[in-house]
């Protein structure tokens, strides 16, 4: 085994952020009063970590604005579900609309922030998040292409590397694409990375991680602007 690979293997043993901690960090990116769509996976956990003083209006692609917390046992109404089919509640001032209007909001630039899961993000901000090559079954696109095309700010939350240790932030996506040049920020278990016209900028690293170690597990060059702070965990 080459020395480089051995060092990377050792890196993979180091503690990284949990999925909940990634969601907690992403919650800090949501401004007060924002209209926000949360996708499947890690993004779906973000609502649990909003700072108390912040009010955010959650949009669901099936036609809800002002979606509240998940329904408690006994409170479920199966006509009131989120995009993952989970029974939810409403906050005061919520509204319903049909699916075309729900996606008019995603495509038309009306959402302030959308947060999606990801399989790969390229250095230009291309996103692949709907199909793994060679996976069984039909795959499914859902709302991801509409959302990635239109959100004012698109954040992707994902693990920094695959289960096999391969970088998920890459020069060019090899998985089927969801959208071109659509991602603004990637939040992983190792870093916060911004996509800029000049390339990827490493904004924060996970506690205990050095920028050069994060770079070793990243498939595209990361720029830094001065000292890179550690991610503040809520």
């Amino acid at each position: 085994m080459p020395a480089e690979t051995v060092r990377e293997k050792a890196l993979l043993e180091k503690p990284r952020l949990t999925r909940e901690q990634i969601a907690g960090r992403a919650a800090l990116e949501l401004p007060d009063g924002a209209y926000v769509n949360l996708g499947w996976g890690i993004p779906n956990l973000i609502a649990n970590y909003l700072p108390g003083e912040i009010t955010v209006y959650f949009h669901s692609e099936n036609g809800i604005l002002g979606m509240g917390r998940r329904a408690k046992p006994g409170e479920e109404d199966y006509d009131l579900v989120d995009a993952m089919k989970i029974p939810v509640t409403l906050i005061p001032g919520a509204s319903f609309f049909h699916q075309a209007d729900a996606h008019l909001m995603t495509r038309g630039g009306h959402l302030d922030v959308a947060v999606l899961g990801g399989f790969q993000v390229s250095e230009k901000g291309d996103l692949a998040n709907w199909k793994i090559p060679g996976a069984k079954g039909s795959g499914g696109i859902g709302g991801a292409m509409d959302i990635s095309a239109g959100a004012k700010k698109l954040i992707v939350c994902m693990e920094h590397v695959t289960k096999d240790g391969a970088p998920k932030i890459v020069k060019k996506c090899t998985y089927p694409l969801t959208g071109l040049e659509c991602v603004d920020t990637v939040i992983t278990d190792l870093a916060v990375v911004d996509v800029s016209p000049e390339g990827l900028v490493l904004r924060e690293v996970a506690p205990g991680w050095r920028p050069q170690d994060v770079q070793k597990l990243t498939g595209a060059p990361l720029m830094t602007k001065g000292r890179v702070p550690e991610i503040r965990l809520p």
Binding site: A100, H103, G140, I141, G143, D146
Partner: peptide, 15 residues
């Protein structure tokens, strides 16, 4: 057979 369509585009094509 299957034609996969982005969800909002499915809406707009029907509309």
């Amino acid at each position: 057979t299957l034609e996969l369509v982005p969800q909002g585009i499915l809406c707009e094509r029907m509309r």
